[in-house]
């Protein structure tokens, strides 16, 4: 493979990414647009008379929310993995009776409409007194991801070569040690993928935040959007600016995390 050919692929990759992210570009465009130009026909392809009003509002009001969102996102990832990884291991490799029923329940659990989940959790949280708390919100956000995490991890762990686990057993490793020292490291790709989506769901969650944390002292950035949604009027440049500001740190995290999804994790482990 010669270098020019590789760059040629990069160019195609850039073009594809460009098409994919065009709506994101449009969002950025709107975030800089003055109210009076927002519905100009035909629209401007780039902000002709840019305004920083949206960003000014966001920088003044929203920055503290970013920290909360980060905390909620990472907390949700950690809790999701703690619950989902052992379950996936058991379902994929130990296959207890009732395992299929459990997978089935997980699948159905995801079909419950978010708003019904939120209403159910509201009632429970009120009685437990954890409404408007961050741990409460983190636990609620995990419900977006846990079934997904278990099902995806199960699929990938089922694909782990049998010889690998057999070798561990021959070495005298118990179930827990096999899980911790063999299965988890080998499942790195799937774990990173699951962690990514979990983080994304928690980061962009709106419904749980607004139902369970709307009176809280620490709110995630999605609720910051409410500052610009009045009962009769919405400030779209500020809403879009909030989304842009919220995306920047999270995008950096995504780029870093994606580097950990690499080929041959399983293969390499077999050879060792």
């Amino acid at each position: 493979m010669t270098t020019p050919r590789r760059w040629w692929k990069t160019i195609i990759g850039l073009a594809l990414t460009g098409v994919m992210l065009f709506p994101v570009y449009w969002m950025i465009n709107v975030s800089f647009t003055r109210d009076r130009d927002m519905r100009k026909s035909p629209p401007s392809w780039f902000p002709a008379d840019p305004t920083l009003d949206g960003y000014r509002a966001v920088i003044d009001q929203q920055l503290p929310y970013l920290g909360t969102s980060l905390l909620v996102g990472l907390g949700t990832v950690a809790l999701t993995l703690v619950i989902a990884a052992p379950a996936a291991y058991s379902l994929a490799r130990l296959r207890p009776r009732g395992g299929t029923a459990l997978s089935f329940a997980l699948l159905i659990a995801q079909m419950i409409p978010g708003i019904i989940m939120a209403m159910g959790l509201y009632a429970t949280y009120l009685n437990l007194g954890v409404l408007n708390t961050l741990p409460g919100l983190i636990v609620a956000d995990t419900t977006l991801a846990v079934p997904f995490a278990v099902l995806i991890l199960t699929t990938f762990m089922t694909g782990i070569p049998r010889e690998l686990l057999h070798a561990a057993r021959v070495d005298g490793a118990g179930t827990v040690r096999t899980f911790w020292s063999i299965v988890l490291p080998v499942s790195r790709n799937a774990t990173v993928t699951v962690a990514l989506f979990t983080f994304l769901w928690a980061w962009s969650d709106f419904i749980y935040a607004s139902t369970l944390d709307s009176g809280g002292d620490h709110q995630p950035i999605t609720l910051g959007i409410y500052h610009y949604i009045g009962n009769n009027n919405q400030q779209w440049n500020a809403i879009m600016a909030t989304a842009v500001v919220a995306s920047i740190p999270a995008t950096a995290l995504l780029v870093v995390a994606q580097r950990y999804v690499t080929a041959g994790v399983t293969a390499g482990a077999v050879k060792d």
Partner: peptide, 14 residues
Amino acid sequence: NTQTTSWQEFAGGD
């Protein structure tokens, strides 16, 4: 159109 969208159209001046 929401009432906001409709207002943005009017605010364009046309």
